[in-house]
Simulated assay, not measured.
Amino acid sequence: MVHRLHLISGLPRSGSTLLCALLRQNPRFRVAMTSPVASLCGVLHQKMCGGEFSVFFDDPKRAAMLRGVFDAYYPHVEPEHVIFDTNRTWTARSALLRELYPQSRLVCCVRDIGWIIDSIEKMLAQNPLQLSRMFNFQPGGSVYSRVDMLMNSENGLIGLPWSTLREAWFGDEAKRLIIIPYEHLVKEPERTLRKLYDELGEPWFAHDLNNVIYDEPDYDALLGMPGLHKVREKVEYRERKPCIPPDLFAKYAGSSFWAKPELNTRGVKIL
Rank of each mutant, 00 (worst) to 15 (best):
F57H: 14
W90F: 15
R111C: 08
G10H: 00
K122N: 09
R30V: 15
E78T: 01
A125H: 10
G50Y: 14
V143D: 01
E167K: 12
N87V: 00
P79M: 09
I179D: 05
D71Q: 11
E183N: 07
E202Y: 13
Q138D: 06
P60Q: 08
L165F: 02
V110T: 09
N87F: 03
L165I: 06
S163W: 13
F56E: 02
D71Y: 09
L7C: 08
L96R: 11
V37L: 02
V268D: 02
A125K: 08
A174K: 03
R98G: 15
E190Y: 05
D59T: 15
A174D: 08
N155Q: 12
F205H: 13
R266I: 03
D71M: 09
F170I: 08
R166P: 03
S35A: 14
L157Q: 13
I8H: 02
V110G: 05
P203M: 04
L124V: 13
D218Q: 14
L248F: 10
P261F: 07
L228Y: 11
K175G: 15
C243H: 10
E262R: 14
L124C: 05
S119L: 06
N26S: 07
E239V: 12
S14H: 07
Y182E: 08
G68S: 12
V147M: 09
V231K: 01
G201N: 06
P12L: 09
E167N: 11
W169C: 00
K47F: 10
P246S: 01
V107N: 02
I83V: 02
G224C: 06
H81I: 13
W169D: 03
R67K: 15
S16P: 01
P246I: 07
A253N: 05
P181V: 00
L18R: 05
A72S: 15
E78N: 01
A95H: 15
P102N: 13
Q46H: 14
